[in-house]
Deep mutational scan, measured.
Amino acid sequence: SDPSEDRAPESARVGNIPSSTSALKVPQLKVAESAQGPAAAHTTDTAGYNAMEESVSREKPELTASTERVNKRMSMVVSGLTPEEFMLVYKFARKHHITLTNLITEETTHVVMKTDAEFVCERTLKYFLGIAGGKWVVSYFWVTQSIKERKMLNEHDFEVRGDVVNGRNHQGPKRARESQDRKIFRGLEICCYGPFTNMPTDQLEWMVQLCGASVVKELSSFTLGTGVHPIVVVQPDAWTEDNGFHAIGQMCEAPVVTREWVLDSVALYQCQELDTYLIPQIPHSHY
């Protein structure tokens, strides 16, 4: 159930021909089969995070001529859309010479989310990475209204306002976009420790780096000194050995919190207090 199309920051360009055919990675995205229709094609874990990302398996898109002007500035990904909605975005992107990729990268400028009429969405990996990267996180209605009015409308009017977990109007995407000089995790050293489900560890690490944190791979690698705040992030329900995560405190002095601390902080683009996310640790033995 991992969102495989989000696994690594590679891009698939639509609308320009790469210098070599080997560089072309066409979105071959799968549809989750469901008797209840597209709305039930998501699996949500206890964290309220949509693990099964969206989309559609299609034939290789038709490439435009390399001489045609390509908008190098805009690059989009989509999240939560049905196959039909994805194809509408594809046509919109081609019309406006926008790069459409299946994986979010540093070059991505827009994340197009499936939302309700009030621009509230589910939480997906692309949603988190879009906010963390200060990108435009907009409703699919931006595409449909632009098509209806036959011009590209202003993104401000379609920015995602909230999500089904953290609140319907928290304005996290807007706050992140306007606060890239004040990253929420700066001054923190974060170790993403142990197993994680539904989200590859490297993507979680990239997320906290985008928010200004330094990533530490091992508990023994924390910088011990003033001005640096170490934090260990774990996902308790992913551990097979009972309560192993309670013993992390015996290996390092850092506070240990659940992954929800990261996800909530990123969604709201406000660093949350650790208290409600802390995992009790077995104290050091004193002999």
Rank of each mutant, 00 (worst) to 15 (best):
V78S: 05
M76A: 12
P195F: 15
T226L: 08
Q28A: 02
A117F: 13
V77H: 02
S19E: 07
L129E: 02
V215R: 10
F128P: 00
V233S: 05
G15L: 11
K30P: 03
R168C: 09
K183I: 10
D264V: 02
A23E: 14
A51F: 03
I98F: 08
V31Q: 13
N166Q: 01
W206L: 12
N166T: 08
I98C: 07
D116R: 01
S179I: 03
W261K: 01
Q281M: 04
P283M: 10
E253P: 12
R73D: 13
G162Y: 00
E149A: 06
V266W: 02
E68T: 04
A254V: 02
Y140L: 06
A267G: 10
G212R: 04
I248W: 13
S79T: 03
S214R: 10
F92L: 12
H110L: 02
R177L: 01
N198S: 10
V120M: 06
N243K: 15
M199E: 03
K174L: 06
D202S: 15
E253L: 08
T21P: 15
G15D: 06
F196V: 06
M251E: 12
E85Y: 14
F158M: 02
V262A: 12
P9I: 06
D157R: 08
P3T: 12
A254K: 10
K91L: 04
S139K: 00
F128N: 01
I231M: 08
F185N: 00
R259G: 02
T21M: 01
V266E: 02
K30H: 10
P255S: 14
T124A: 00
G80H: 08
M152K: 03
T99C: 14
V89P: 05
R94T: 12
R175D: 02
T258N: 02
Y140P: 00
V31E: 14
V137D: 00
S57D: 08
A8T: 07
S11K: 02
T197V: 15
K148P: 02
G187Y: 10
L263Q: 04
T105L: 07
I147W: 11
R182F: 07
K25A: 09
V257F: 01
T43H: 09
T124M: 00
R150F: 10
N154A: 08
C211K: 00
R69C: 13
P83Y: 07
N71F: 08
G130H: 00
H284Q: 11
T44F: 11
L29S: 15
A132Y: 00
I184A: 04
R175L: 09
K114S: 09
M113G: 00
I17Q: 05
H229G: 12
A8L: 07
W239G: 09
S57L: 07
M87A: 02
E54T: 05
S220G: 05
V138L: 11
L219M: 04
C191P: 00
D157G: 13
R259C: 00
I282H: 12
I17W: 04
R175A: 08
T21W: 04
L81G: 04
V232P: 01
P27C: 09
D275N: 03
V234L: 14
F158S: 00
T201L: 13
D181R: 12
S75H: 12
D181A: 08
V257C: 13
K114V: 03
S34R: 08
S75P: 01
R13F: 04
N16R: 05
E59Y: 04
T144R: 04
L24V: 13
S34T: 11
G212L: 02
Q272R: 13
M52S: 10
F128R: 01
N243W: 12
R58V: 10
T109Q: 00
V78N: 12
A35Q: 06
E122R: 03
A35G: 05
T226G: 07
V111L: 03
I282V: 06
G187R: 11
E178V: 04
R161V: 15
H229K: 09
A35L: 09
H284E: 10
Q250T: 13
V111G: 00
R7V: 03
V26M: 09
T226V: 06
Y277W: 02
D163G: 01
E178I: 08
E118H: 09
R175P: 00
S34L: 04
R150S: 15
Q171D: 08
E218G: 13
E5N: 12
A39K: 09
E178G: 07
G37I: 08
A47L: 09
I147N: 12
E54A: 07
K25I: 08
R168E: 06
E122Q: 06
G227M: 06
G162F: 00
V165N: 03
M52C: 13
W136I: 04
G134N: 08
C271P: 10
R73N: 06
M76T: 03
M74G: 06
S4K: 07
G37L: 11
R13T: 15
N198W: 05
N198P: 08
M207H: 03
G48R: 09
Y90R: 04
K72Y: 06
Y127P: 01
R94L: 14
V137E: 00
P280Q: 13
E107R: 07
D116E: 02
K72S: 06
T44H: 12
P27H: 08
L81F: 07
M199P: 05
P255R: 08
S11A: 06
I17E: 14
V70T: 12
K91R: 02
K135S: 14
M76K: 01
Q36V: 12
Y193V: 15
A8R: 07
K148A: 14
G37E: 10
G80M: 07
W261A: 01
R7Q: 09
M52E: 09
H229L: 13
A93M: 09
E62V: 03
N50A: 10
L129K: 03
H170P: 01
M251R: 11
R73A: 14
E273S: 11
S285Q: 08
D181P: 07
A8I: 07
A32V: 12
V257D: 01
K183E: 00
T105E: 14
Q270F: 09
K151T: 09
I248T: 09
A8G: 13
E178N: 05
V160N: 00
I282S: 12
E122G: 02
H246L: 12
E54L: 10
P280T: 14
G187F: 13
T105K: 05
R182Q: 04
E5H: 09
L81P: 03
R58S: 12
C121R: 01
T21Q: 09
Y49E: 07
C121T: 03
I279M: 08
D6P: 04
R58G: 04
H170E: 01
H246P: 12
F158P: 00
T108F: 02
E5T: 12
E53G: 09
Y193F: 10
L129I: 12
P9R: 05
L100A: 05
G48Y: 03
T258G: 10
V56P: 01
F86K: 05
Q180S: 14
F128L: 01
F196W: 13
V143L: 04
V112T: 03
D45S: 03
E33Y: 10
Y193P: 09
T258S: 15
T258Q: 15
Y49F: 13
F158I: 00
